[in-house]
Every structure is written in structure tokens, then in C-alpha cells.
Design a protein around this nucleic acid. Sequence first.
DNA 1: ACCTGAACACCGTTCAAGT
DNA 2: ACCTGAACACCGTTCAAGT
Lengths: 233, 233
Amino acid sequence: MDSDAHAPDPSWWGRPNRNQSRSTLTREAIVTAALAVFDQVGLEGLSMRRVAEALGTGAASLYWHVADKEQLIHLLLDRAMGEIELPEPDPERWEEQLREFAHAGRAMFGRHRDLALASLGRVPMGPNLVRLTEWLLAVLHGAGIPSRPAAWFGDVFALVGAAQAVEDHLATTGDMSEFTAMGEYLAALPPDRFPNIAKASPELVAGSADDRFEFTLELLLLGLASYIKAEPR
Amino acid sequence: MDSDAHAPDPSWWGRPNRNQSRSTLTREAIVTAALAVFDQVGLEGLSMRRVAEALGTGAASLYWHVADKEQLIHLLLDRAMGEIELPEPDPERWEEQLREFAHAGRAMFGRHRDLALASLGRVPMGPNLVRLTEWLLAVLHGAGIPSRPAAWFGDVFALVGAAQAVEDHLATTGDMSEFTAMGEYLAALPPDRFPNIAKASPELVAGSADDRFEFTLELLLLGLASYIKAEPR
DNA sequence: ACCTGAACACCGTTCAAGT
DNA sequence: ACCTGAACACCGTTCAAGT
């Protein structure tokens, strides 16, 4: 008997999806995994090691495809920006379209709890932010708003949108939110020393996230309108 | 000869400032040290270990006086807010006073490079933010602005101020700043596919930090004015 | 009451070595 | 060209033990 004589492997022993399941690492795949991890554990919990683990590999392997954790966050942000769908720019309805855009952005941030926080202090310029920028400028230019205020307004708009989304998040976070704790602190201040806080105390904290969002949006749009009128060139 | 016979220490060997230099740890002292470390190494570089080292002790010692790194950051923010000096509220000059307030805030953020970034996504409510809030509400109430828009406007105002300060920082950071790199990227985009970016490309990036700051400030003030008029109750 | 050292369970990143 | 394990130099926080 010859113990060296092996029968060939049967066909059904073949590894499934030879080149797919043991998926080769891709930048795309890494960003996808990172976004999933991010959605589960937040910005604080996001780590190269965890992303790697989700891909069944080690952290060091990521560095062939990605420069940095910081770069990965930028890629992740751009990926999420891609979820915002845009209608054809319609100059006639520019104000309405800006409102719709704001709501679409807010919805996107709402789907990824910590994304707004991650976006503050970063300018995740990439294909998708380019796309959004082009659209926004098209709408503003179409409305007859000159380049300078249009460009600068876009900046403020994005920023306020993100910041507002962070507040949305704060206001709806676990147990007794920071928000209500703050309300109690403010309400308990001596009214004679802080008369204006005492007077406004309910308003400082109350109001639904929706109401606040609309207020801020309106503030910006009204500001924009006035500015255009005040400085038409 | 008796080797146990020691001469007493001469007076000039005494430890300087017996109860002061070997300073007992205080929350105050910790916050001071933390702010100093923060100014040197930024938000990224701030660590409990480094703060402790600056105080000549170990990280564990801080935890008697401070709950968290997170709490320490809040304390540090409130401390810095204390640097903003406020004039008597003068209802007659409310718009001008808001402008002065914005500039004072910007100057404070300018003194502590990473502080604006740290403040985004945090509501560092404490004695000093209370003080600033009371002042802001006094000015707005004095101007006849009702509590709700006043309160909500304060929010937006603080937020935009911080975000703007972050941009100030980005625009002036080391070597070739992210800002100019972004400008080159945008300018190099195919103009036929991104006509509006092509048209606005210089404006997207150009303009001094001062100009942008004034633009944003004006936008908010004009928005506020319009809002009041539009919704007087 | 306050401080400490040592430990725990993590990090991001690099680098020689493998295929 | 791409992936890996092990190492380096860090983290925040806890906890028993000291004074």
C-alpha cells in the first residue's frame, strides 16, 4: 500500500467564491467596513484595529490602502456625503431647493449618529463634496447670487448644518440627556443675579429639534436674502 | 568619631516656599496646567499623563480632583471663556455690541489655537458660559428681541463663532495649508463638468480670514434683524 | 482626605519578513 | 504588489496600597 497516493479533492471541496469571499482588501471595502463600525460604536470607538477586525485581518494591513486613520475618516465622510441625492437645480425655486438640501443633509447625518461631529473641523473635500458644492453653487448662481457670497454662504451653510445635527444628536442621546440636565442647572440659577437667563430659561432648552432646525435655516436664508439686497454686486 | 552625628541642615537648604512650590494638587491648578499643555500640543496631544507630568505627578493623581478627561476639557473650556471681558450691556448699541462680542470671542479662540475645535460638539456650560449667556440675553432682550429667538440665536451665534475660529486656524496652519491645497484641487477640476465651481473657484478659497469672518457675522445679524421683523411676537 | 505605582485593556503606526 | 506579526511608544482609567 502506498500512503503517498492521495485521491484528488472532490469538486465540492473547492473554496466558495475563490476570489471573492476571501475578499481581497480594497480601499472601498475598508471604507465600507469603517462606516459600519463607525455607525455602531461612534467616533470615539472607531479604531483601525476594530475596522481591521471587521474585515478579518490585522490593523497593519489597512495601511497599504489608506495613509492614516485621519484619511480614513475623510474617506468615510465623503462616502456618507454620497448618500445625499440632489434634484436638478431649478433657479426658480432656489430658496425651496436650499431648504430641501438642508433637510436631506440633516437626514443623512441622522442616519450616521456621530458623523456630524466627525465632520466639524474637517473639510472632507472629495468627489462627493465637490458634487454637492457644484450643485449648491448652481442653485445660488442660478438665483442671481454672485460668486463671492455664494461661495462663502456655502461654507456657513454646511457648517451650521453639521453643527445643528450634532445638537440633534445631543438632544436625543440616552437616558437623561445633557440637554435636560443643562436646563435644570440654568433654571436653578439665582434669578436676581441672572435675570435674563431666568426670563429665557425655558426657551434656552425647550423647543423641539425640528423647531430649532427650522429657526436656524430661516435665519440663514433671511440673512442671505438681506445680504444680497444690501450688496448686490 | 560618631558617624551618627549629623550637623543640622543649614537654613539655605530649606525647600523654597514650603507649602506652595510643592504645591498641593488643586482642581484650579490642574485646569491651569491642562490649558498650558493644550496650548502647546493641541487637542490631539492633550493627555492626562502629560498634564500630570506638567504638575510633577502621575496621571492617577488627577482623578481625585477631576472625573474624566472629558470633564477636564469642559473645565478648560470654561476657564478660557473667562478671558472674554464684557462691557455693560447697552440696549441702544445692541448690534454694535454683538459685533464687539464676536470679535472678543474670536480673539480668545485665536489665543488658544485648538480651543475652538474642542468646543465644537461640546456645550461647556459652567460659570463663565452662564455669564456670557446672561450678557448676550441682556443685550438681545434690551433690544426688544423676544426670548425664543434670543435664546436660539445665542446658540447659533456661539456655534458659528467657534466654527469660524476653526477655519481661521485651518487657514493659517503650518507649511502649505490644507486650504490652499484644496484651492488647487478645485481649480484643477474639469470646467465643463463643474462649471459653477470653475466660475467660483477663486472665491471658494480666497478672501482673508477677516473678510470671511465679517461676512458671516453680517449674515447672522441681517438674518436676526429680518427674523425679528418677520416674527415680532 | 489625598496621593501613588502598577496594572489593565486598549490605542496608531512602523517595519522586517513573508507570499 | 500586497499582507502579516510583532513591536514601539503611547493612551484613559482603576485599584489596592500607602500617608
